[in-house]
Design a binder for these strands. Structure first.
Lengths: 203, 203
DNA sequence: TAGATTGTTAATCGATTAACAATC
DNA sequence: TAGATTGTTAATCGATTAACAATC
């Protein structure tokens, strides 16, 4: 399968949400014209995007809801469930890792680790010892982790995750990471996100 | 001032972080070559981006740290402090709204509202009555809000915020919003975000 | 059939990259 | 001066948009 352009990839999840609405409304077919209207986009763009997924529509009717959903999910890799590690025990990490939206997209947090290593009495028993991670990652075939440790530990922890075979890292620490290109990192910096939103309006 | 291209805008916050590192290291000048090396980007791109901010470098030395920081912050609108409303009282909203990163980018959450309207006994006194929002927004000149209510209330709450003069909305509900184009909305869907990260690697 | 919608091919637009002269 | 780095102009690349034939 050809790899889709990143802009297309980013729009697919939105289409998935529209699809859910349409299915809830009892529709069997959806049209690019209709979606474009709802999204404020052009029908051409919607159709071009859907073409990337391999979905084929029928003139006058549109795209079959069930087929389209399968196709989009295949592209997003959410046809199979994805098991994920949570690394760090802060409130933010727990909030995001436990968010229902992750489940909806096929993700499941199977274990939590704490590199800060509070293994003293009273420690949360659901948090696994940090040393166990490489072994478990290998045995369970985990390649995705949510990094939510405190900033000062970010780089070092990330390196050890990379060494443990983690290939996709959702970096919530706000600390820029330097990792080998084999590891895909999604950096989150909340203030920066909000800042770019503002400038869109101001401009 | 000309509005910068969105891709450039999105890279600016990263430059700001590098700048902080460099300042901490006691440097007075930074070069595009150096930054490109650290970011895995090209010097040309860095220079082109910085050109948008209006910063002027000196050959052989690079860009003056203090000047560059001013210029970038001006573009990001973080030269002035930005007051923000938090709407909704869930854990996620509190985590993100209270995140130090927001402060670093010049944001300040000045009031919290709860449209779910738990004004019964025992209610949190730091949460203001929802009815007061339009009046306060006007008096304080607030145009930015973080929307963190439960999904079922999202659309209706957003509409009332728009009516109250909110022009930038950070939508953490995971619910797609339909609002007039005058309101800039940054939609967050955590599962979708994680999903696009994965496909980057898989592809 | 008529009309709406798809899918494809070409044109436009914008961002990134390259080349190179200017300069401290 | 020599060499590193900037800034500008041109070339490339990719994504979006437009035009239109195909089809149910």
């Amino acid at each position: 399968m050809v790899t889709l352009p990143l802009p297309v990839l980013r729009r697919l999840p939105t289409y998935l949400l529209l699809l859910t609405e349409d299915r809830a409304a009892g529709r069997d077919y959806v049209s690019s014209t209709d979606w474009a209207g709802r999204l404020g986009a052009t029908p051409i763009q919607v159709r071009k995007d859907l073409a990337w997924t391999g979905a084929v529509g029928t003139p006058k009717k549109g795209f079959a809801v069930t087929d389209l959903e399968t196709k989009i999910r295949e592209c997003l890799g959410t046809d199979a469930r994805r098991d994920v590690f949570l690394v760090g025990t802060g409130a933010l990490g727990r909030c995001l890792a436990g968010h229902p939206s992750l489940g909806r997209h096929g993700f499941s947090v199977v274990a939590t680790f704490d590199p800060a290593g509070r293994c003293a009495a009273g420690a949360d028993p659901s948090v696994l010892p940090w040393e166990k991670l490489p072994e478990l990652a290998r045995r369970m075939g985990i390649s995705v982790a949510i990094l939510a440790v405190e900033p000062s530990l970010a780089q070092k922890t990330a390196e050890r995750l990379a060494a443990a075979g983690i290939r996709s890292l959702w970096n919530l620490t706000g600390q820029t990471l330097a990792l080998p290109p084999a590891v895909a990192v999604l950096e989150e910096d909340w203030g920066a996100r909000l800042a770019t939103l503002i400038t869109q309006t101001a401009g």
